[in-house]
Design a protein around this nucleic acid. Structure first.
Lengths: 343, 343
DNA sequence: AGTAAATAGTTAACCGTTTAACTGGAGAGA
DNA sequence: TCTCTCCAGTTAAACGGTTAACTATTTACT
């Protein structure tokens, strides 16, 4: 069983040259039907499968697609922390990639140079960038010959790369309008970072637009940023709101994780939700429907986002289109029990 | 920039043969110091990095480590569903693997044959099995020359493979003893599957042991299985408990996800936790401390589990003949607000 | 019949490394 | 001086495929 059988073994067994075997296996019509038959049975009998490393070297194509995450502190943990989001997206990506005969390689981006080198040396056919990276990385990556698909990233790079996102701005608009329609005027916006997180920026724009439409002047004092989108940061921010911002009566948080953390803090201090505070999140993670009260949120289909991103990169690899793809998936307002008419 | 520079370009630039460059780059002491110097500057000047595909083919080692997931319905989604567990573990694995210069390839296991073929054709150096697979897969994998490390799997295969787990039995014991000490006697055990999920089986054994120690006879009517460890299944089971099993006053669920789903159902029907029901989970996912009430649970360090598993596989790869490793990591009882003295 | 084209195959170069085996020269020991 | 070993390199054969270019038949068309 430990035997390594090569294409030459198959060739010998079928009484032909290695080339003929290769032609048959690659579906190149250059071999008579009888010979093809003979070769295929030899393949079966010897249980042969081509060595993909050799194929890669020869074809100059690895059939591997890389998924890059930004590395904040050495491990992916910060990225994945509290975040069903990325695993769900990877599920979608893996699903498509496997169907097309590619393999999925996961890597954290260290320095831009290392990243570039990695792609070159591994012969990675295509790349998915998940999250926001240092700007110089985007600049350097332009030199790459393999296609790169960005998921959720800076607008300024969308003209250089394929790009998949959801309609974050509309999501922000929907969430805020919902609160406005419930009679709220003092609506806080809580996000990771308005500059470093492009997604948050767009959601903020939607928030701002909704306020203006309702004749409310957006105020900087209602906007809050946190280090990282985590429960803990939400919790801490919730306590801060209670102390320093008693005027606020509604919160739109840029992620369900943050929203749930905020909710926990408010509840612990005896506040009733939605009677005292209305809260809207973003993402619709599973927890959101199981929290008490269940969380009103903006739903995005993350699995599908992964599917679309992977499909794009494969299409780009196989040159099924030459122009850059830009897909903006829709979002949906899910009204649950964390929001109510202003009392 | 698009230029592909090979080892021969470097050789030419330094006025030596390709072999010398290779020797220098591989740290083989066969080249004089001056020449080495010349070669290294040439490498720098041309910004050369060896083509890893060619290296793989030549060295018969890919420097890639595979992570396998069981595929239940075609995508990884079911696995990742509601499950921070696997992403956290991948973080740990990736962290170690990258440090050692390996790459991480993720794949869902389709048929055992395909799986075997994949490892052979891709030249995967080592494998991590995450979760429980069909039995025939384990049997077939024994033929593999690359080391395989199992994480959380059937006891019967632990003598054939490296194996990393947490002390599930002790976890089950701790959880149940905690409930017993609070005066509970009617303690339900809820899990995914006592046979197909080896982890659940061990937790059950701990549960049983704790009951027996307390002089309580374990009863089959107190044991419940669900399709998949998800919120929804927990929720449905919670409702079932309310309808059909009014005697039950405490629940030990084999995952926090299940526990939280059960809790939601009970609360919706007006039950108070922990006054009416005491609930203990397993895993300590982030949301557990943010639920209302916060969930008493058994904590395991999943990131570390990934670290240990990855370290094991790398050690096995690099010292071919070391003995099988079996690591059982400890667990910890975290007492929060979902458990109380029986009223 | 004579030429052109299609068919069915083979040969060998190539992808970019590694590494065993070889080479020529210098230094050491007899 | 003659061998023997080291040293610092080079050469060329792998690794396991792919594929352009070539060959030898057969078929088709004037």
């Amino acid at each position: 069983m430990g035997e390594k059988i090569t294409i030459r073994d198959v060739a010998k067994h079928a009484g032909v040259s290695a080339a003929s075997v290769s032609y048959v296996l690659n579906g190149i019509n250059k071999v008579s039907d009888e010979t093809k038959e003979r070769i295929l049975t030899a393949v079966k009998e010897l249980n042969y499968a081509p060595n993909l490393t050799a194929v890669s070297l020869s074809k100059q194509k690895s059939n591997m697609i890389g998924v890059m995450f930004p590395l904040t502190d050495g491990s992916l943990s910060t990225i994945f922390k509290d975040n069903h989001y990325y695993s769900e997206m990877i599920s979608g990506i893996e699903y498509v990639i496997r169907k097309h005969g590619y393999d999925l390689v996961i890597s954290g981006a260290s320095s831009p140079a290392d990243c570039l080198k990695w792609i070159r040396t591994r012969n990675i056919d295509g790349l998915l960038f998940l999250g926001a990276f240092p700007h110089q990385l985007y600049e350097k990556m332009k030199a790459l010959s393999s296609p790169v698909v960005l998921v959720d990233t800076y607008e300024r790079y969308e003209r250089d790369y394929h790009h998949i996102s959801v309609d974050d701005e509309h999501g922000g608009y929907l969430a805020t309008t919902h609160l406005v329609n419930l009679g709220h005027k003092e609506i806080a916006f809580v996000a990771h970072h308005l500059v470093n997180s492009p997604v948050d920026k767009k959601r903020y724009i939607g928030y701002e637009k909704a306020l203006k439409e309702a004749g409310i002047t957006p105020s900087k004092t209602f906007v809050f940023e946190v280090n990282e989108s985590s429960f803990d940061n939400g919790y801490n921010l919730g306590n801060k709101l209670l102390q320093d911002h008693k005027d606020i009566r509604a919160v739109f948080a840029s992620s369900d994780t943050l929203a749930l953390g905020i909710m926990k803090a408010l509840q612990e201090k005896g506040k009733k939700i939605p009677q005292d505070y209305s809260i809207v999140g973003f993402d619709d993670i599973t927890f959101s429907s199981y929290a008490s009260p269940s969380l009103t949120t903006i739903r995005q289909d993350v699995f599908n986002k992964g599917v679309v991103a992977a499909t794009s990169v494969i299409q780009a690899i196989e040159h099924r289109f030459s122009t850059l793809q830009h897909v903006k998936l829709s979002v949906e307002l899910i009204i649950r029990d964390s929001t109510a008419k202003r009392g």
